[in-house]
Nucleic acid binder design. Sequence first.
RNA 1: GCACCCGUAGUUCAAUUGGAUAGAAUAUCAGAUUCCGGUUCUGGGGGUUACAGGUUCGAGUCCUGUCGGGUGCACCA
Length: 526
Amino acid sequence: MTSTLLQQLQEACMKACHDLFNSRHQHIFQPAWFELSPTRKEFEGDLTLVVFPFVKMAGASPEQTAGLIGEELLQRREIEKYNVVKGFLNLTLPAVALENEFLSALQNHDFGFDKSEEKGISVVEYSSPNTNKPLHLGHVRNILLGHSVSALLAHSGYKVIKTSLVNDRGVHICKSMLAYKRAGGRDTPESMGLKGDHLVGHFYVAFDKVYKQEVAQLFKQYCAEHAETAALDNPAGQLKELSAKASDKKSALDVSEKLLLRQLTEISNKAEAEAPSMLEAREMLLKWEAGDEETLALWRKMNNWVYEGFSVTYQALGVNFDTFYYESDTYKLGKNLIDEGVSKEVFYRKPDGSAWLDLRTDGLDEKCLQRSDGTALYMTQDIGTAVERQKDTGFNQLIYVVGNEQDYHFKVLFRALQKLGYAWADKLYHLSYGMVELPEGKMKSREGTVVDADDLIEEMLHNAEEITKELGKTGDLPEQEQKQLFRSIGLSALKYFILKVDPRKKMLFNPRESIDFHGHTGPFIL
RNA sequence: GCACCCGUAGUUCAAUUGGAUAGAAUAUCAGAUUCCGGUUCUGGGGGUUACAGGUUCGAGUCCUGUCGGGUGCACCA
């Protein structure tokens, strides 16, 4: 059913009601009252009008009201026939009208696409990975959502620019660089027979292992040095236990427990910050920021490995991007906008020089926008990139596909841009999606419970192949086409599995059951 | 403590955004098919939509409260 046919009938209904009921009272009819929905299959008819809104103005029972409207439409030859069930008016369209619709749909190459108007430019940001480890199932949800939304927007009349903001800078990158150097600095994806992103990921894990040990040791040492904690025989266990208890709503900590927890947390933070590996990583970041050539060369080399790895994964998923933004380019952006905001008095500076935005009147909080040493924060940067993108593209709509843990961040970001007075600030949208969970709970890279994207894709293709061959459905297709077939079956199962659940809700993935190819699943769609 | 999100068959998810008797898949049970406790078909059972109020002609959907689960509250990203 095209929108024109629907619209025609909607207008006809509106006119009919106007002529029927307006003689007695003046009503302003709103199109929203005339939402026509497809008739349920257990009733006769094509479209259904809910007549309850008009019962009062008709001064009749729902059945009578529906009858009046139906009769009027019939008289005007808008419909073939009608029937009434309670307050529901089921309309049967003339066969000719349907036939015409069908014929014009056949003619129309773009059927189902809304090219009726140019809706402008829509920028969709998704994927946005860190460059220190491979993509996992959480990214897959993000990527498929972003890609699908882009496709939907393109089909509905937007010019879509798909973009990704690559987080390629910061201590976390330095961690894998450091571990790489420690391991001799000679390995390459080729020599190790690994995808670049996986190789770099290994070094990140290697760093973390050493770092954890250092922290544990330091923690123990510091605890022994403190009078209050020296007597504890298992301070690490105590800390874990207490923080678990503190986050549990049902149990409350008593005063001495609270005090102990605070001390232990303080010591733990100190140990984390002062572990030799962390100090070394920070030092490396400073070198990076100072433009040290050796550090930059290593950084470029490893990042390129990761990019090559990512592009293989993207290709396997059948997605792509039009532009990339790199945080190493954008991280300084936004500072002049903070100045602008301060001079406009929508932001303010504290005596130490840090810049803030006060949103307490909006029910939010105070938010730091710039550090006292003048360097940029996540928020500073995001303000900058938004403005930059508006300059680059002139977008009419900017969609961020980002997990729902960052709901607050985007609320503040949008408010900040509004306060700066940008007219396009209300065209920003955070497509917030829920986490992908395993039966044991959240995926945690530290505990090795992440579902790797490449492994998952490979498994899907493998399963598709096995099932298809077992059913003997390959016939005598050439091998190349068989591969193509397994790919589309396997990928469709994966994509449907991910996309069928409401993006806002968290979703469950059970690796032991593997994604189904039977029943209500992807392979049956095409 | 404060803020935001979520609670729907045993399980994983729907429900045209406030419309008709809350639907699928899967699991389960019964029957058919059969070299098979596998596969494939057919049919059945399975629900006080977490709970209690309210608004409405009409509520899974909106409002209030309670309970349960999650996330966020850094001069990290």
